[in-house]
């Protein structure tokens, strides 16, 4: 029974691992192929099934004039917009969440839970509902097709995530922590940044990770709100698709786009495995 259970367990884990890893292996393999290797039937192993080439990778930083696709600028645009949007969202979201967790707000029938729901409700609507208002508003402020315009939109999209995660986190932080800091001589602001904030780093990391993932993978808004001046990575990758799909460059670009998230996942995973994201207070 025990042996059967172990075998089944390993079988399920192995199948799941294959399911997760296979697309990556396929993309890595394809990124080293050329037109011939892709179109002449299924091939998998370099040097055995096909002769590897770096053409697909080289095309990524060659200018279109030289037959490349140049995703370097969109890559750094994406990094800038995602990081700026996430940082500001975390900053504002953490402050809002602390206030919602610790102070009581009343305005007519509106209470703290209603305000929290209002934040989260921004994510309930389908993105297409927001697209036209965003387009009109950014147009009015001359922010269409600019990095600043995208950052503003990303803050609107990412802050609900930060507020949602951080309200829940602060609600689990005992109020006695704040009260002790006040008793020890802090004013409410000092109690927040000297005591509560350092203890909330695990929550901030989780919220930051979600913001980065949602920001980095957004295609819809970067596609709608930019034209020629500014391009983000997801839009640049989709733009690769032409009448003859360059699977080799597309695979290389996909790997480049997923690399930062894998790096973030590794950093956070190490942090998670230390048990630092739970029970930090008591």
């Amino acid at each position: 029974m025990g042996l059967l259970y172990t075998c089944l367990k390993y079988l399920v884990v192995s199948l799941w691992s294959i399911f997760v890893i296979a697309p990556f292996l396929w993309a890595i393999s394809t990124s080293f192929k050329d037109f011939q290797s892709v179109t002449n039937g299924a091939t998998y192993i370099p040097w055995v099934d096909f002769e590897p080439t770096l053409e697909g990778w080289r095309a990524l930083w060659k200018s279109p004039a030289k037959g490349g696709v140049d995703i370097v600028e969109p890559f750094f645009n994406s990094i800038f917009v995602t990081c700026a949007g996430s940082l500001i969202s975390i900053l504002l979201g953490t402050l809002a969440a602390y206030a919602l967790s610790r102070f009581t707000f009343k305005a007519g029938f509106i209470r703290n839970s209603d305000i929290t729901f209002f934040f989260i409700s921004q994510r309930i609507m389908p993105p297409v509902v927001l697209a036209i208002p965003f387009f009109i508003m950014l147009g009015k402020f001359a922010l269409l097709d600019t990095l600043l315009g995208l950052i503003v939109v990303y803050i609107v999209l990412l802050m609900p995530i930060a507020v949602w995660i951080m309200v829940d986190f602060f609600n689990k932080v005992p109020r006695e922590i704040d009260e002790t800091a006040l008793i020890d001589g802090c004013n409410p602001y000092q109690a927040f940044y000297k005591v509560v904030l350092p203890n909330s780093i695990p929550g901030i990391i989780v919220a930051g990770m979600f913001c980065l993932i949602f920001g980095w993978t957004d295609f819809f808004f970067s596609f709608i709100l930019t034209f020629t001046e500014v391009q983000l990575l997801p839009v640049a990758i989709v733009a690769l698709n032409s009448s003859i799909t360059p699977w080799w460059s597309l695979s290389a670009a996909a790997l480049v786009s997923v690399a930062p998230l894998i790096a973030v996942a590794f950093v956070v995973e190490r942090y998670l495995s230390k048990g630092n994201l739970s029970g930090a207070l008591k």
Partner: peptide
């Protein structure tokens, strides 16, 4: 307080 309140960091 009744339960330990420490500054964990």
């Amino acid at each position: 307080f009744q339960f330990p309140v420490i500054y964990g960091t």
